[in-house]
Design a protein around this nucleic acid. Structure first.
Lengths: 359, 359
DNA sequence: AGGAAATTAGTAAGCGGTTTCCACTCCCGT
DNA sequence: ACGGGAGTGGAAACCGCTTACTAATTTCCT
């Protein structure tokens, strides 16, 4: 083996607190105190230690620190996909609040796999994250719920907190915190809006039928129909995926079947975008002949032409709330208030150009 | 203080490896061996230990593990903003590859602050991340480069790697790995394309002038002009931010000045989107009267009408490459190949509908 | 049968910090 | 002068896990 420059080559051992102590002529305890500023240290000593730290390029070992007792100041977040704006905005809220509190953020993605989701909870537990935030709707599945419950308890026993963000609670006896948004109310509001515009036959498109989010949105939709005395037509409820493709195909199929409808309620904005694309391709004017609405108000809603009428969810705020719920707000005066275990953020109707009166 | 249910209340100490050992009637070393499968253990013993682990709900402490020698299997990534698709795609590539290698991903955002960026490198160093991936163009700034260099060395000394993703190397004597994309080439290609469509006066809009990305794109742009024998008109180079607003305002101003141009080269897709919006608002047909191109090929490019002609960067692949460069590909046969220190991913011209021949 | 080799399990020394006790100076009041 | 606080700094016991190194059985040959 050829001789190479040792400096560029070697992964030499990094300096430890003992090295710093030696160099500064003090004990490691003193160095620790200088770093943490949690104990009086003479000015002159402090300076010597700080100089030694700088000279050695000392960087504390977060693992040793975490092990020795101090919390490791980390929060974990589990989302479906980093690129999906719905999740990205929530993640941004979490990341911002975590950073504000001087914490680091472990982000991991399930890409839709339940198995992966459970594995990630365990991984974050191993990392002793101060909080684990689980984002996105959940599926109705007894075994799965039991698995999540078990992990919530384990996390709690370890002094951490599982936060469910955008999915219903697992029951009052399971130690979790919950951040919800008003799916039912938003769906009610936007359906009602369509009805006041004269629409009677509204095609509900997309959303896996067992997903908590879909269920809640459908409930709101139905309640609005019901309150206005409209009969629900099963043929108009077409659940499925939450992507653009499904919206596109759904409309293609509906048109081919000559299904009668004057409005489309996409289970989210992606589906609505696909629907609009299919309508455009078929030469059906929006909102001239068919109106379209979505849900979430992600950026694509404003890119579409006509711009999409949808329901806004304060996604970033949900992320912030999730962190606060779990860890508290160090700046806030919340030590006065009782410990919150859940928060609900409101949804608002955003009227743009994709809805018109029924012809 | 009122008496509360101890079970729901207490953050009781989690089970340790010693608890498991006691319960299974073995030593902690044996438990460790069962968990890590790196040493032979009798089948019967293994079963007893595994049972004890399950009964106690034992979860290993990643910090203790990392301290005791095993790598902590973590990679850190520093980006500007989670919500920006440009960064989100790269982050996704990193996250996917990290997960594939059984590692966890620490994601943190600078929100544009240099100070924050340097602080985050330190924080990830403290976490002893196996690799730290720094994403996005860099500014020409001597002091700043020196700070990054110092940290690259420190990281290297600790056995970790700093990967620069989308920015030029700091020099061959600085121990980093680099993943670049061909900014210059892409800009050359798209400018050349505009020229072949007959455009002679192309307005280059956006991009901070000191940003490495802007510099490279401008170089490519200029080279194309030069090669076709076109004189560069300084009035047509208008650097600035990389957001939509800047594109919008830039066009408004240019139109108000009655600046003469038949094509716009947005420094990225956001700027191009803003430009198109301003042109639409001003009643200037695209691409009828003015052609527009962007750079990056983020999703918005396909939402715009007309769809945006732009340069595609394989963002997700960059993320994957960054991780592989730093950590190798455990599945690949790369132990045969020399250690790579840099990779360049190609850019490709994506022709859509926003460019037409000059009238 | 007797000892070498192979298996399997335990002991204990770290890993790099934090933190609880203690010890040692000074400085002050009486 | 002397007892007693402040004000500082050190020694050493952990935190929970990995991993030499060592020890105790079996197993297997000759």
């Amino acid at each position: 083996m050829t001789e190479t420059n040792a400096a560029t080559n070697a992964a030499t051992n990094a300096a430890t607190i003992a090295d710093v102590a030696r160099r500064a002529g003090v004990s490691s305890a003193t160095v620790s105190r200088v770093i943490n500023r949690n104990y009086p240290v003479a000015e002159s000593t402090r300076e010597r230690v700080e100089a030694a730290i700088a000279e050695l390029g000392y960087v504390a070992n977060a693992h040793a620190r975490a092990l020795a007792g101090a919390t490791n100041r980390t929060v974990g977040i589990i989302i479906n996909d980093l690129v999906d704006p719905f999740f990205a905005y929530i993640a941004r809220g979490v990341e911002r609040e975590a950073t504000r509190q001087g914490r680091l953020c472990l982000v991991s993605c399930t890409h839709g796999s339940h198995q992966q989701e459970l594995a990630l909870i365990d991984l974050l537990h191993e990392q002793r994250a101060d909080a684990v935030i689980l984002v996105g709707g959940s599926y109705e599945d007894r075994a799965y719920a039991a698995e999540v419950t078990r992990r919530a308890r384990a996390l709690h026993a370890g002094g951490s907190t599982l936060v469910l963000c955008g999915r219903p609670s697992l029951g009052t006896d399971v130690p979790t915190k919950v951040v919800e948004y008003d799916n039912e109310g938003g769906a009610f509001a936007i359906t009602d809006y369509l009805i006041t515009q004269g629409h009677r036959r509204i095609l509900f498109l997309g959303g896996p039928p067992a997903l908590s989010t879909t269920i809640a949105r459908l409930n709101g939709h139905r309640r609005a129909l019901d309150l206005r005395g409209l009969r629900e037509d099963p043929a108009l409820i077409r659940t499925g995926s939450l992507n653009r493709r499904f919206g596109y195909d759904g409309i293609r199929t509906a048109l081919a079947e000559k299904l009668e409808f004057s409005a489309v309620f996409g289970a989210n904005d992606n589906v609505a975008a696909g629907a609009m694309q299919a309508l455009e391709a078929a030469g059906v004017p929006v909102p001239g002949q068919v109106s379209v609405v979505g849900y979430d108000d992600v950026p694509v809603a404003q890119e579409l032409r006509p711009q999409l009428t949808t329901v806004r969810i304060p996604l970033e705020e949900m992320g912030t709330q999730a962190v606060r719920l779990a860890l508290g707000d160090p700046d806030g005066a919340d030590y006065l208030t009782p410990v919150q275990t859940s928060a609900t953020v409101g949804t608002t109707l955003v009227v743009r150009q994709s809805v018109g009166p029924r012809r």
